[in-house]
Design a protein around this nucleic acid. Sequence first.
DNA 1: TTTAGCACTCATTGAGTTGGAGTGCTAACA
DNA 2: TGTTAGCACTCCAACTCAATGAGTGCTAAA
Lengths: 344, 344
Amino acid sequence: MPELSERAQYLLKALTERYIREGQPVGSRTLARDAGLKLSPATIRNVISDLEEMGLVCSPHTSAGRVPTVLGYRLFVDTLLSVQPLEDSLVDDFKLSLGADTDAKDLAEIASKLLSDVTRMAGVVTLPRRDHAALQRVEFLPLSEQKVLAVLVIDDQEVRNCILQTERNYSASELQQYSSFLNEQFAGRELNEVRRRLVSELRETRENLNRMMATALEMADQVLGEAEQGSDYVLAGQTNLMEFEELCKVNTLRHLFEAFNEKRHILHLLDQCVENEGVQIFIGEESGYQMLDECSLVTAPYSVDGQVLGVLGVIGPTRMAYERVIPIVDATARILSAALNPKD
Amino acid sequence: MPELSERAQYLLKALTERYIREGQPVGSRTLARDAGLKLSPATIRNVISDLEEMGLVCSPHTSAGRVPTVLGYRLFVDTLLSVQPLEDSLVDDFKLSLGADTDAKDLAEIASKLLSDVTRMAGVVTLPRRDHAALQRVEFLPLSEQKVLAVLVIDDQEVRNCILQTERNYSASELQQYSSFLNEQFAGRELNEVRRRLVSELRETRENLNRMMATALEMADQVLGEAEQGSDYVLAGQTNLMEFEELCKVNTLRHLFEAFNEKRHILHLLDQCVENEGVQIFIGEESGYQMLDECSLVTAPYSVDGQVLGVLGVIGPTRMAYERVIPIVDATARILSAALNPKD
DNA sequence: TTTAGCACTCATTGAGTTGGAGTGCTAACA
DNA sequence: TGTTAGCACTCCAACTCAATGAGTGCTAAA
């Protein structure tokens, strides 16, 4: 990519900003008026023509103004953007809303709602991964004929339960034995470590023919398997996307909403953002998913104790106010991280 | 409403069926050919003209054919419809899919998916109300500083837990005392009865200054309050609705999808169907909700032990194949009922 | 009661027209 | 060499206009 003159950069910025604001292809005359430079439309045409050659802008048809391409947006976002600082009042609002002492899922829902409300686009938050969370305790309770209730206490905020189908009946005291055995062994360890060690221990105890331990371990294994509720996300404000001209073709919307329902693809995309520290942006086709061709995704990971637990973000048209959305997503990720941190 | 001649009825039926099939206003010529009656278009025009006077059909504009009105659909559905029996293979499929031994929520999700897949419209299933379900057991477990985990075993299939914030720490044995006290009192009783009795018992024990009982009751009260996860529903196949011409205005879709997200309205509507035994149908504006003006809703309640637990149904355009949807909804309700019944 | 005939209405389609916005190119200017 | 004015050109969007065709209502005859 050849170097871009100061002026060309400035004009690309002006053009992109104008287009984001107005949604209409912008022509040389408009730009001349708008940009504040003392240049005639003709001069501007020359510059813009260079930008076009570099693939940063294009015109939808011969006699229309120019529109940023994905590449143009990319350059704009990476090097030209002047990010606005966020109003304190908004941050306070967010902190308040995410301050309630509820479980992770509720927080995710609140956060996605906040994101969608403030940006008037769609907000998305993946549920926190719990691989690295510490297992606090396991409890087994007899339920009924050949059914045992297993309760998995992960931390103060999250408890999962699942119902095990067993081969025979177990008494409460027997189950108590199992759980205290397991707690001795595994309490305080990370879930994925527990998972790993379960496998090896199982093999070992089977060899040793220790019936009681084996049963306990088998149960634990089953619980972890069940509780392994594959990663998931919550979405809010999908309908906001219907307000944007450029997405308002029924077919575009259908593909988009099908993807939202299907979840697989969106999840895969969001997973890619876990790696990256800080705000990450996919513009248009960059995502690699066709249904997002006319959309951009702005994400940021959230974490607890330096462990990234998930990702949140905003989905909207490529023509979105990045300079506003970016700080919002960034701040929300921080606030959510704080909310998830054990406060004591 | 004046009596309708045999012939008029027949023609209304033919017209409605044709319109449902083709989606185009049907004219007298078409109807003459289609209906199998040996009548000229002119004659048919006379009859149709009567139907129009009665408000059963109308024409979108002067020189178009006729389309059934809501009233026309109503008459069609109530008295003219020939419901097709369902293929056994489909019923078997449904039974298989709903046979798995999972919890109520999963079943509801499967059912709504089935409904939407088979009808190519949107399937909806309310989560089962648990007011009349028997409380099997309560357990309290100490979690951490001033936090107690309460587990509510409702029946073999459903367990709820919630985390209580308490004023001081409780030991495991103390909590054990509470839960066994509560289980003695309430196990086996219906949830709403438990709720009712809790209130009065609380008042009584407070007067008696029985500290221990009071605490136990207060905890139970809190649990029930928390677990009171207001009624809810699951929806599948919303995007199918985008395939229908008549709903494909972005605005219509937006209102519809907003209603789906909002849930309140749809729930209220579905609640009305609990009363009615068997299949109930809302056609177009009959629902009273504007966003459903161009939709119909076909529902049937499902129940266990004669207790209606919820409603399921299909949402689609008014122009839907009622004769097919009705038996599908009916059968699904039966199969879901069976699946929820304790099998032992 | 049914039918044929006819005049009439109205949505839809496609072709032709116009106006405006914007471009690219060229030649002149600083 | 960079900047500007002028001009021909392109294309979209909006509009008009006429033709088409599906369907109706009415009337009078079978």
